[in-house]
Design a protein around this nucleic acid. Sequence first.
DNA 1: AATACGGGGCC
DNA 2: GGCCCAGTATT
Length: 326
Amino acid sequence: MQASCGGMELRPALLAWYRRNARDLPWRGTRDPYAILVSEVLLQQTRVEQARGYYARFLAAFPDLNALAQASEEDVLRVWAGAGYYRRARNLHRLAQAVAKTGLPAAPAELEELPGIGPYTAAAVASIAFGKPVAAVDGNVRRVLARLFTVDVPSARWLQETAERLLDRAGPGVWNQALMELGSLVCTPKRPACATCPVARFCQGKGAAERYPLPRARRRTAVSATALVLKGAGGYVLERRDGRVLGGLWGFPLAEGKGAREHLLSRYGLASARPLGTVEHAFTHKKLTIRVYAAPWSGPDEDPNARPLSVLDGKILALAERGPGP
DNA sequence: AATACGGGGCC
DNA sequence: GGCCCAGTATT
């Protein structure tokens, strides 16, 4: 960045703004690398306000690497339940078991070898917890850089190089957070506040923010599914999911597509079941419409309150307890 | 480079 | 109902 003629340069301008406007977030008050790691994993594709509660809850349950390493996977998932992307919890658990003895590595390359740690989280932890001079590029930084330099489809390589060039090597952790905070509070996806932006005079995309970066293509397909509510003496029949979706969590017997109902009935040796209602649940990539059927059950069952359930299965549980509605 | 992967909040 | 978030792993 060139020194400006009549004012401050970009770096001090952003840092001055950050000092005055940084939100008081719980993970900003700690130097504990483990706590910072937990916050960063929780923040993967998750809004700050949503992550707040889970952060407090997770650290209360597992205050350090050893506590997490010694917990059962199911306990970890129970605390994580509702936060989504459950692979994150299972990876964090595995990570703790891998480094409980040695402690977290400080080098980004070593961090990135750990399960669930990609380029962003490795850079964030290395810079914020260990002061390493590496740029952390998240969705906020991507948007800020695309607008600063009017790049409509920024590649991962360009983003990393540009962020490294801009990085304040004297205080990389604060710098990375300042850039993200700007994207979160000022340089927002819709209607950015260019009029009050501390770096507007350095920004080539000011006033045409909607063009930088261009929105990514997405689609969500509609999928029908069937769930089975088998109520026994002590709870319900719950299965431990082992697929990619909701892996490790427990839930009602569920199957997608045609013949799902017959498939489930035969799995439990049932001739019929009565319709209980419908549950809708949207994932990032598909929208599920689940027809829920109920039947009596006298075999082994599970207490749903004692098992980690996803929000989806919470909806089915609510329907089961409420009975067929109006 | 493209796709799968949860949930919540905002317009 | 669409959009998108302090992304990662897999293909």
